[in-house]
Amino acid sequence: MVPVLAASVFLLLTAGVYLVLQKTLLRVVIGLALVSHAVHLILLASGRQGVVAPVLLPGGGIEGVADPLPQAFVLTAIVIAMAMTIYLFAAMAALAKSGERMEVEPVPDSDEAHAPEAVQAELEGRVTRP
């Protein structure tokens, strides 16, 4: 499992950092989500992985059971990250409603693509190609 874990962390972290370095907020947020996934996997890698989940059978031994503590940590971290992401979505929505640009840097590539109609079109499946 370790090489898979390592490869996945590599993928998530690379893509995450790559997106965090982008200019629009949505990309940064997606990037951060990927970085969080990577971080959670690192956290799981820190304890012993075991071959059995830490849900015990009555009377069963503890031989080969995965370390439950990192799992508890990760669970906490996932929920907190979710709370922050939801808050961020709402904040972005509130901002957009108030007409404020929310890019990290004001570099839109074409104005038409950002018109509400374009978004509406995309939502309805009529994806516009730039």
């Binding site: 950092v17 370095l21 929505a93 957009a96 509406q120």
Partner: peptide
């Protein structure tokens, strides 16, 4: 509807400068 209004639909694409930062960290 509100979130994506400023996101460009064109592909994000690869840029070597950003990759040069991202890959070592990955």
């Amino acid at each position: 509807r509100f979130i994506v209004t400023q996101e460009s639909p064109s592909p994000i694409g690869l840029s070597s400068a950003r990759l040069a930062v991202a890959v070592p960290l990955g």
